[in-house]
Design a protein around this nucleic acid. Structure first.
Lengths: 208, 208
DNA sequence: TAGATTGTTAATCGATTAACAATC
DNA sequence: TAGATTGTTAATCGATTAACAATC
C-alpha cells in the first residue's frame, strides 16, 4: 500500500471532522460534505478512502460511525498510545502538562532528564533520570517518544531511546538527526516554521 | 515567481547547513556538498538557487559568504523579526522562554493573555492583557504572532490580532482556523503529528 | 587543455483532480 | 424511474530528477 504523509494527515483531519459532524447529530456524510469540512475535494476524499479499502454506499454516502471505526483503526486509535517525553526543559515540561493529547487517546506516561534537579517522581507525569529510560521503555513497551532536549544532546538521546525500543520520535531540536535503523524521526522545527511564515508574509507585502 | 512551501523550507536548511560549513572553515561549497548536508540532490540545490536567480561559478561552486547573504535576504533575516505570543498557558509560556529563536534573529517581544493572573509587565518577555494587543501591535508594527490559546478562543483571538495588523500566524490550536483576508495562518498540530508517527510506526511493525 | 561544475531544459515521477460508468 | 453518489480510471498538474551544453 503506497501512502504518503499527506494522505495520512488527511485521514486524521477526516476523523476530526467526523466527530464534529457526529456531535452535530449527523449520522451519514457524503464525500462532498467531508471535503468541505476539511478544505479538500470530494474526489480526494473518495480516493483516500479507496486506498484503504473504505467503501460507502453508492447513493447513500458513508455511515459516520462505521467510517470513524475504520479510520480509528487505521490510525491506531483503538488502543491508548503511551508516549514519553525526553527533556524536561521549557518545551518538554509544557508538553507534559498539555491536556490536548488525552482526547486523542495519547497519554504521556513519563518524562526524562539528565538534570537531577528536574527529577520528580511524584509528578502527575513523573520526571525520571535519563539513566532509567532504557528499563522504563522496555518494561512498559513504549514505542513513541517526544524529544525536547538541547541540540547538542539530541543525537545521543535519540540513540539511547531507540536502542531501548523506541520506534517513532517527534523531534523538537532544530537539527537533522540520523534515525537509527528501524526507527522513524519526524521533526517539528519551530525556527523554520517561523522563517517560512516570515517569507510568505514578506512576499504578500511586496506583491500588494 | 512560483515557489512552494517546501522550496522555502529547503532554503532555510541550506542556510543552516552553510553556517555549519562556514564554522568548519569552508569558504566555498558545491551543489553536491550542500545536497549531502541537507539530504537532497545536487540538481535540486541548483534548481532552487536558479529560481531565486542565485548563481555560482561554473567550475568553482558557490562562495559561502555571498550565498548566505542572498539566502538571508530572501528569508527576511537581514532585520530582526519581532514576534508576539498570544496565550500564556503551558505552550505559550514555554515558547516565550525558549532561547532557540534568538540565534535566528527572531525576538519574542510580548505575550498576551485574558487571564489577569497571568499578567506580568516586568517579565523578560512582558505578559500583557489581551485588551492591549491591538495598540501594542500597531505601535510596534508587529506582523508575526504565535497563537497558543485554547481551541475555543483561537478564532476570535486570530481575528483580533489580524484586525490589529498581524499578517502571519503560527497556530498551535489543533483546529482549522479561517484566516482573515490578507493574513496567513500556518499550523503546528501536535496531535496530528503524533498520530502520523504512530501510523508509520504501526505500518513498519506490520511489514517487518 | 581536460576535467569538473554550473544552469537550464527535458524527462520522470507522484499526487491531485476530473470524468464517468456503475448502481442504489 | 430519474437523480444522485460512489469507486475507479484517465488526465492533469506540479515538483523532483536527470541530462547535458556551456564554460571556467
Amino acid at each position: 500500500m503506497i501512502t504518503n504523509k499527506n494522505c495520512i494527515i488527511r485521514l486524521s483531519r477526516y476523523k476530526n471532522a467526523l466527530y464534529r459532524l457526529q456531535a452535530l447529530g449527523f449520522v451519514k456524510v457524503f464525500s462532498d460534505n467531508l471535503a468541505d469540512s476539511v478544505g479538500g475535494t470530494a474526489s480526494q476524499v473518495r480516493k483516500d478512502f479507496s486506498i484503504f479499502g473504505i467503501s460507502g454506499n453508492k447513493k447513500g454516502g458513508y455511515q459516520i460511525d462505521s467510517l470513524l471505526e475504520k479510520l480509528n483503526s487505521i490510525l491506531g486509535k483503538d488502543q491508548l498510545q503511551k508516549v514519553l517525553v525526553v527533556g524536561a526543559g521549557h518545551i518538554g515540561s509544557a508538553l507534559m502538562r498539555y491536556r490536548g493529547f488525552e482526547k486523542e487517546g495519547i497519554k504521556i506516561v513519563a518524562g526524562f532528564d539528565i538534570d537531577p534537579a528536574k527529577i520528580n517522581r511524584s509528578n502527575p507525569v513523573p520526571i525520571l533520570p535519563l539513566d532509567e529510560a532504557k528499563a522504563f521503555i522496555k518494561s512498559n513497551q513504549i514505542r513513541i517518544a517526544i524529544l525536547a532536549v538541547p541540540d547538542i544532546a539530541a543525537q545521543s538521546a535519540l540513540d539511547l531511546i531507540c536502542a531501548a525500543g523506541i520506534k517513532g520520535v517527534l523531534n523538537f531540536a532544530p537539527l537533522r538527526l540520523k534515525a537509527p535503523d528501524g526507527s522513524i524521526v519526524n521533526n517539528v522545527n519551530l525556527e523554520i516554521e517561523l522563517e517560512n511564515l516570515i517569507y510568505f508574509v514578506n512576499v504578500a507585502e511586496k506583491t500588494k
